[in-house]
Every structure is written in C-alpha cells, then in structure tokens.
Design a protein around this nucleic acid. Structure first.
Lengths: 177, 177
DNA sequence: ATAAAAAATGTATATATTTGCAAAAAATAT
DNA sequence: ATATTTTTTGCAAATATATACATTTTTTAT
C-alpha cells in the first residue's frame, strides 16, 4: 500500500530532520518520490501522533509525540501475524499465544501502535497479556488489534467469543471519526 | 504583571482540562477574569512550550511538552520513581508503565516492600501488572504505593478511572505548583 | 470474477494559528 | 518626574492546518 510507505517515510524524516511545516515535509517526501497533497499529510500526521511543537527558539518543528520513535525495520509489521498462534479471552483480559520467543517483539509492536483501548501489555516468552482499559470491551480490543494488524483474525483461531456484525459497525464508526 | 498571571493560568488549565483550541482556552481564561486576544495566546503558548498534539481519537488537544515538572518539596526522592511513566487502572488491576527495561527492577522493589495489599506483580519489559488482594480497592493500592514510594503520585499521570476526592487534592496541589 | 463496503485521496474551502506593524504598557535611565 | 528603551498587546492580514465532499483505490464478501 502506498500509505504505509508514506507513513514510514514521514516518521523517518521527522525523527531525523527539522521539519517546520507540512509544506516542507511535502517537499522532502517529493524528493523521495513520494507524492501527496498537504491534506493527506495533515491526516497522516494526526494518525501518527505527530505534533507541531515549539522549538524553544521562537519557531516550531514537527515531532513524534506520545508514541515511540520510528521503528527501525518495517519488515516486522508484515511478519508479526504469523507468529501469533492463538487468542484467548479470560477474566476480561486477552491472552495472546505466540511462537516461542516471539511474545516480546509482538507486544512491543502492539504497544507501539499507541492504541487508547489498551492499558498495557505484558509479555513472557510465548504469551502476551493484553489489558484493556476500563470501559473497553474485549470486542473493542479485537477490533483494535485488527486495526493494528490487519488480517489478524482471518488467520488466527479465536477462543472465547464470536465476532458479530455489530462489531463491524463499531469499527465503521470508529474510523469515520 | 498581567502576563505572568496569565501564563500560570494557562499552564494550570492546560494540564487539568482538555483544551482543543486557542479559542476554547480563551474562554476558559475569560471565565477566570483573564482577558486577552487569541494572538497573545498564540505567543504565550509558544513561549510556554505548549503544543497541539493528536489525542489519539481523531482530535487534538493542547499539552505541555518538553517541560519538566516542577519537583518542589520532599528532599527524599527514590530514584525508582523517575522510571515510572504512567499508572493506569483497569479491570480492577493496576498497570504501571515504566521506561523500557525498567519494569522488572521496579516490580522487584514493590514486591520487596512486602505489602499485604498486593497479592503479587508481574513485570514485562516496560509494564508491570499489580494484582491487589481480594477486598482491596485500587485506592488502597494507590495509598500503598504512595507509602512505598513517597511522592509517586505527585509526579505520575494517572489514567483509567474516575478521580476520587483524595486524588483531586493531589492533582490540585500539583498544578498549584 | 463481480458486487459491495470500507478506506484513502485530492480539491476546494473552512478553520485555526501565526505574524508584521503600530500603539500601549512597563521597565530603565537621566 | 521625564525621557528613553524594551516588552507586551491588539488588530488586521498572512500563513498554516484541517475537513466536507466527491471520487478513486483497496479490501472484503458473494
């Protein structure tokens, strides 16, 4: 997808250079062969959690805030799903089983998505505990994970609930905002 | 000077409420008898290092960035506190987020305090799950942690639940600087 | 493969924020 | 106290960013 590539490029540029406006970023991207409009950039920046912060010298620059610095390799994004073996719900929590040794990387990935729905994750060797915030249903967490890792549920066995049409609606509303 | 008073009021408002635009802030100030134009506000915000950050839910809010919190009173500061970034309550549990790699040491520290209120802790890389004993409220756990790490809540953002009276006081004191 | 639904994008425009400039207020010097 | 310099402010205008809407592209379902 074109968007993913652009998002990664934006993260990279912003964490490495002094970008003072969306127009400036637009040009940098152009230099990399990535072309879009300022409007798209505006939307992408919001999505990435990028904000315009005072640089302490009377000006402004764009910076990644709230979320972690650009993840070095993007490859993990595509490979993250195959290591997930099972998703189990219990006690209002979600337990994700992964291939041995893969829990941490996966949890790290989930954390990095910076989703509000997820209070936090804890990873052992092959198990991740996902703790939803109060007021967040497990279905919402599923949707959230699906957003973070598109295609996830198609591949993974899910124990404990079933996905309904209602869920789809929730999802729709979410992304509409 | 009028300006100083305004700057302080701005900080206070922004750290306590969800401000989504300069216009909104303008009104809040007006409610406190502080009147100025949006242009002045713009200048003040830059001076304060306040920026407009994506709120993760499709909107924006103003937030203090790049500013260290005032660390006034107590001389005794356990160096464990600075690694704690956030405390979230969820599902009757408490999730403590730390700087990467610091969860274990912190959890160990908490365990060693030997508090009855805490059934146990589980730590990943940057997240600790604190499990209260049955019959123990999260507020009790907070108090407990405060005992173990005096000054903790003054420094840490707490999210996930409605705020108790006791806590409001803590917050109040905090923003009063 | 085709239809249906959802997501992404550009255009034009609305909204929000910043800034040049002149006036007013505050601080400093005489 | 008065003049001089510096800082702060409002106004109006410039600039920057966000968004409604229509359209295209991508994804998902049949």
């Amino acid at each position: 997808m074109q968007k993913t590539k652009r998002l990664l490029a934006i993260e990279k540029i912003i964490s490495g250079e002094n970008i003072i406006s969306q127009e400036a970023l637009l040009k940098k991207l152009k230099g990399k062969g990535i072309i879009c409009t300022q409007a798209t950039l505006s939307r992408n920046l919001r999505q990435l959690g990028v904000s315009r912060v005072p640089d302490g010298r009377g000006g402004y620059r764009y910076a990644l805030t709230g979320k972690k610095e650009a993840s070095p390799d993007s490859g993990i994004r595509l490979n993250i799903i195959p290591v997930i073996r099972e998703i189990v719900e219990a006690k209002g929590l979600m337990v994700i089983r992964t291939l041995p040794g893969n829990a941490n990387a996966t949890a790290y990935y989930i954390d990095n998505a910076g989703r509000y729905e997820i209070a936090g994750t804890i990873a052992g060797d092959d198990t991740i505990l996902v703790i939803p915030r109060d007021g967040i249903t497990l279905n919402q967490v599923h949707l959230c994970l699906e957003l973070v890792m598109p295609g996830l549920h198609k591949q993974i066995e899910r124990t404990g609930t079933s996905v309904s049409k209602k869920e789809k609606n929730i999802r729709k509303n979410r992304s509409d905002k």
